[in-house]
Simulated scan of single mutants.
Amino acid sequence: MRPPSPSIPEKEFLFSSLKQSLRLDGRLPLEIRTPILTFGSELGWVECSLGKTRVMAQVDAKMVKPPPERPFEGLITIHSEISPMASSDYEPGRPSEEEVTITRMLDKVLRRSDAVDKESLCILAGQRVWHIRLTLHFLADSGNMLDCACLAGMVALKHFRRPDVEVIGDEVTVHLPSERAPVPLSIHHTPFCFTFAFFPDPDTTPVLDPTQLEQRLSAGLFSISLNAQRELCVVQKLGGVPLPVDEVLRIVNIAVQKAGELNSLVEARLREDWACRKVEVR
Rank of each mutant, 00 (worst) to 15 (best):
R23A: 03
A219T: 12
S113C: 01
F15E: 01
V109T: 05
I224G: 03
R250V: 07
E247G: 10
G240E: 10
I8V: 14
R271Q: 12
L134N: 04
V207S: 02
A149S: 13
F13P: 04
D209G: 01
S218A: 10
Q127T: 12
M105Q: 03
K19G: 06
V155Q: 03
V183E: 07
L249M: 08
E99A: 00
E179H: 03
L22P: 05
H131M: 08
I123K: 07
L208H: 04
R70I: 09
W45N: 08
P182F: 02
P4M: 10
P6R: 13
S49Q: 07
E267K: 13
S225L: 11
E280F: 02
W45P: 05
K237I: 00
I224Q: 01
E99H: 06
S142C: 12
L213Q: 02
S7P: 00
G40Q: 03
E272S: 04
P202H: 05
A86P: 02
E42L: 15
P4W: 09
E267R: 14
M154S: 06
S41A: 13
R33H: 10
K237N: 05
N253Y: 04
S113H: 00
P242C: 01
G240N: 12
W130S: 06
F194P: 01
E42I: 14
T195V: 05
I251V: 13
R250C: 07
F72A: 14
S223W: 12
L157V: 09
E81S: 13
K108F: 10
V245P: 07
F160E: 10
